[in-house]
Simulated assay, not measured.
Amino acid sequence: MNIVNNIVLSAKKVLHAESEAIGRLADFIDESFVGCVEAILKIKGRVVVTGIGKSANIASKIVATLNSTGTPALFMHAADAIHGDLGMIQAEDFVICISKSGNTPEIKVLVPLLKRKGSQLAAMVSSTDSYLATSADFILNANVEREACPNNLAPTTSTTAALALGDALAVCLLEARGFSSTDFAKLHPGGSLGKRLYLQVGDIYLQNQAPVVEENASLKEIIIEISSKRLGATAVVKENSKELIGIITDGDLRRMLTNFDSIERIKAADIMTPSPLTIEPEQYAAEALAIMQEKSITQLIVTKSGNFEGFVHLHDLLKEGLV
């Protein structure tokens, strides 16, 4: 067997082992897990997640997930806790301690100190009869049969299981609080993710030119308006009104040349596309993007109650990082 086949088989073996371990976690969701969620929902303080070694890395990620989904949390390294960082924990906080064995020296020193603080303690462990588990108020069972490491030593399956269980906890808390996409956007204002959840069409279309002609506008007026506003299109409104009735694009002008023998008396209403796609200022920019992608167009007319307001262009969405 060549080295390529060995690599492929090894990778698949690890992924299968870890996916099976995560699948087994569903059988461990019990009253203690439910009690842990209910207790966290009642606290006035924060969730403090701690661990040692690789478990500390997992704890840090769980803290990030909790914070981003509406549960205030902070990370405390178990080793640092017994050298001064324990002061960050208050009686009204809830502590989650992650440890595969639940019997490491640092954990045995830390647990009694946590109990003196008066904080409730949840143990995320693989060994439910360990020192940590038997000392905790709640057990989050992250049991794994063995590590994906062929020597059964390097934390692999166990840390993956802990990470998945942390996600399950965070999502349960999110759903129990009724944490919405709007709430999520408030905590993620930066980057494309946040913008997809809060950026509205009204936040961006006003920066654009607003080409518009009335229905009886001449061909010369149409061409000048499209050329001067540089959006490749113009809206068409009723005479002496803002009521939108159509759109004329560069493509409509080209088609006009093949559809009409004489163009001297052509008016906007003769060549416009009626009832164009529109979007309201209060709609999300991500909705505008979805429409453009579905219809293979590069701009949308913005309207309020059927009246022309302006244009939002694909370039605007590119500039905002939504594409």
Rank of each mutant, 00 (worst) to 15 (best):
T69P: 06
C172S: 15
A185K: 08
N67V: 03
T249L: 06
G194A: 03
I29A: 09
D261T: 04
D250S: 05
T298K: 14
Q90T: 12
E214T: 13
D252Q: 08
T278E: 03
A91D: 06
S60W: 11
D183F: 09
P155Y: 13
L199D: 04
E175H: 11
I224P: 09
Q209N: 12
A176S: 15
I297C: 04
I7S: 13
S218W: 08
R265L: 15
D80G: 12
K61C: 00
E175Y: 08
V125K: 09
L15T: 14
I43G: 08
I204D: 02
Q283P: 10
V237M: 01
T156F: 08
I107E: 02
M1S: 13
V48R: 05
L15C: 14
L140E: 10
P274I: 06
L197Q: 05
D261F: 01
T160I: 11
G35D: 08
G190W: 05
G232I: 10
G45C: 02
A185V: 12
V95P: 06
L74C: 07
I224R: 14
D27F: 13
L163K: 11
L169C: 00
D30Y: 11
I266A: 05
V323R: 13
H16I: 15
T65P: 06
A122H: 07
T258W: 07
P189V: 00
G202A: 09
E147L: 11
A161F: 04
E225P: 00
T159K: 01
R116V: 12
A288Q: 01
Y198R: 10
V63M: 01
T182G: 15
V144G: 09
L9G: 14
F311R: 05
L153H: 13
A81H: 07
S305F: 14
A185H: 06
D316P: 04
D80P: 06
T258G: 08
I82C: 03
K304D: 14
V14W: 03
F179Q: 00
L318E: 15
V49N: 01
P276T: 07
S275Y: 09
G306A: 12
P112A: 09
L132D: 06
R24C: 09
R255T: 03
P155V: 13
I271N: 02
G321V: 12
M272Q: 01
A185P: 05
V171E: 13
I247M: 05
A288I: 02
K42I: 06
R255D: 02
I58D: 05
P281I: 13
G191A: 12
A185Y: 00
I224L: 14
